[in-house]
Amino acid sequence: MKGFCVALGLFDCVHKGHRKVLEEAVSIAEGNDLTAAAVTFDDESLGLLHKTQIYNLSTRKLLMQSVGIKEIFAYRFDEKLKKVAAIDFLKELARKGAKHFVFGCDYSCGSDRKTGKQVAKICNEIGVKSTIVPVLMIDGEKISSSRISKLLLDGNINAANAMLGQPFFISGTVIHGREVGRKMGFPTANVSYDGFTPKFGVYKTITCFDGKIYAGLTNIGSKPTFGIEAPSIENTLIGFDGDLYGKVLSIKFIGFLRPLIKFDSMDKLKLQIQKDMEDAKC
């Protein structure tokens, strides 16, 4: 059986810094006849670790696999694992076939929270090779999941996307809604989604489904003009005329256009939507 080159980390949103670690593991695996693998934690564990979950485990797996990771060890951060020291955790992975570990210099491992060179020293002691990947910076700022989460919650999509290394996206199934947009002449797709969302507002987005790509708008939040407080996600596709019910849409966020506004009349709302549509085409 082939051994593994294992990327160590939370990989809670697979941002640009995470990708650098994963890509290094893939490169080492390919050059040494190993299988590229990664360690992460399940969705419940991220909550226990007080981490904002930008992407769920299934999405994180897809993102890691897109880089070239072939095997993913997803752990549950339970009471037993909380007490496991770094050396014991790494030994367990070695027993599974780990021959080389790759991790960032700020990676923290085990109940004793060993980091960087300390982890490398343990690897040497147990006979497993290791590679430390430097922290990745953008404009002098460290890329981190917490920073990306804050940027998204502030509506700063451009800065968040720069740190992610690709547009932030959500995926959901189109369901029946109140058809408010359709009655106004702007049909929208109501998307069922219960994951992390950025700041409420109107966004320029790109939507993918069935191998097709459409520019458009996505409204996240309430509908103040109609007195509807319940938050929802409504997607408008430019140039699309058809039935989307039951379709799974992947929505990529490109830019924040404006906050939610309560308009005095339907005519003013229609004019604003027309302007939003033009802005989304740019």
Rank of each mutant, 00 (worst) to 15 (best):
K150S: 10
G31F: 08
R76M: 09
Q118L: 11
L90H: 06
Y75N: 07
A189N: 00
S111W: 14
K281P: 07
I157G: 04
G242D: 07
I206Y: 15
G116S: 04
L151E: 03
S27G: 05
D210R: 14
S222Y: 10
A94R: 14
I138D: 06
N161G: 03
L10C: 07
A37T: 02
G155E: 06
I132T: 02
G201L: 15
R182S: 14
L136G: 01
M184H: 15
G47Y: 15
I72W: 00
V84G: 05
I138E: 11
I157K: 02
D210P: 09
V39E: 15
D241S: 14
I170M: 03
G68E: 11
I54E: 09
L164G: 01
L49I: 01
L93D: 06
L90P: 08
N32L: 14
L269A: 01
T40E: 04
D264R: 15
E229F: 14
F4D: 05
G195S: 03
L244A: 00
L237C: 06
S145G: 03
E92Y: 13
A160V: 00
S58P: 09
G140E: 07
F41R: 05
V14E: 05
N190P: 06
D88W: 01
G116D: 06
L257R: 10
A25R: 13
R178S: 10
V39P: 11
G116C: 04
S146I: 05
P198T: 09
L260V: 04
K16E: 06
V202N: 12
S144R: 04
I238C: 03
G172P: 12
V119C: 10
G181T: 07
P167V: 08
I72E: 01
K262C: 09
E278D: 13
G255R: 07
G140D: 04
E71S: 03
V102K: 08
D241G: 00
F101T: 00
I72F: 03
Y193K: 02
C105N: 11
M184Q: 15
G195E: 05
N32A: 13
L34T: 00
L152H: 02
G31H: 07
Y107V: 01
A98N: 02
P187M: 00
Q272V: 11
G3K: 03
E125L: 15
T218E: 08
Q65Y: 14
L269Y: 01
L49V: 04
G3H: 06
Y245R: 12
N32F: 15
A94D: 06
G181M: 05
G68T: 09
C109G: 03
G221H: 14
L260S: 06
S192I: 06
V128Q: 08
K114A: 12
K96F: 08
